[in-house]
């Protein structure tokens, strides 16, 4: 099977000269659960944002199902973005809007500006919003303001919003870094579920190696904007760990045992 996502020689130099990505080449197959790890500043966020062009790469190529994302502009870029969901460490919900409106916003890429301006979503979109809210277990919060929810609930709203796009790929930029361990797992479980049940490819950056081992089918480590490791989670031993995180690093565990209850 050919690669769903192909990244070739991707370089990103920020204004000011920071070389955040220094020649990344990767092939990701449909259905993989890729975990990105690496020190803070290693380029994880930049790589994820170059895939949907929230950040403009300096050079190199990103292809989704052989369509050149890096060359797309205007309407074509927006049609590509529709197929790529994204969730964020800070959830990035419109805090004053209702949970429902936030989820519905995930559908904007499919709808005309006119419908947006007059607040007239289609019945189909409304059905879909309720469906996705139900799916992430917060149907009862549909009419609450987004900022009235706990962190874990807000991230689930983020997932529901991204699911509205019916994406083929889901990007997640440290989705659980602002959450406590138990809540982290409850959010990761939803990502695992959409990966396994819906066959959505997940590319997710994580801070904890234990989470990477638990959820990833493949781990890619970045170091100074380059791929420092690319392989199975089980292959990361003590030596590899120190290579990625530096000699002084000590691995910390994040509890998997008690993962139940409200997020």
């Amino acid at each position: 099977m050919s690669a769903q996502l192909r990244i070739t020689d991707l370089i990103k130099v920020y204004r000011g000269g920071t070389r955040a990505l220094d020649g990344i080449s990767l092939e990701i197959t449909r259905g993989e659960f890729v975990v990105l790890i690496g020190l803070s500043g290693s380029g994880k966020s930049t790589l994820l944002r170059c895939i949907n062009r929230l950040v403009e790469p300096t050079s190199g190529r990103v292809e989704l199902d052989d369509i050149d994302v890096t060359a797309a502009g205007g309407g074509e870029l927006r049609r590509i973005r529709r197929r790529i969901g994204m969730i964020f460490q800070q959830f990035n919900l419109v805090r004053r809007s209702t949970v429902f409106a936030n989820v519905l916003a995930g559908r904007l890429g499919y709808r005309s500006v006119w419908r947006t301006l007059v607040f007239q979503p289609t019945h189909h979109d409304i059905d879909l919003a309720f469906e996705n809210l139900q799916r992430v277990g917060i149907l009862d919060k549909a009419y609450s303001r987004a900022d009235a929810l706990s962190g874990g609930q807000q991230q689930r709203v983020g997932i529901a919003r991204a699911l509205m796009q019916r994406p083929d790929v889901m990007l997640a930029d440290e989705p659980v870094a602002s959450l406590d361990p138990a809540t982290s797992h409850s959010v990761m479980k939803y990502l695992e579920e959409i990966n396994k049940k819906d066959g959505i490819t997940v590319i997710c950056s994580l801070h904890f190696l234990s989470l990477a081992r638990r959820y990833g089918t493949r781990v890619i480590a970045l170091k100074d904007g380059r791929v420092a490791f690319d392989g199975l989670p089980a292959e990361i031993d003590e030596a590899r760990f120190k290579e990625i995180y530096g000699l002084d690093a000590v691995e910390v565990e994040i509890g998997v045992a008690k993962v139940r209850g409200e997020a």
Binding site: N52, L54, R78, R79, I80, R81, R82, I84, G85, M86, F88, Q90, F91, N92, L93, V94, R95, S97, A101, A105, G106, R107, L108, G109, Y110, V113, T116, L117, G158, R161, A162, M164, Q165, L171
Partner: peptide, 19 residues
């Protein structure tokens, strides 16, 4: 943040500002 997230869904500029 919210603007970035809504841009990522494939919305255009006007939709991002509005939403």
């Amino acid at each position: 943040g919210p603007g970035e997230a809504i841009t990522a869904t494939g919305a255009n500029r006007v939709q991002v500002i509005w939403t």
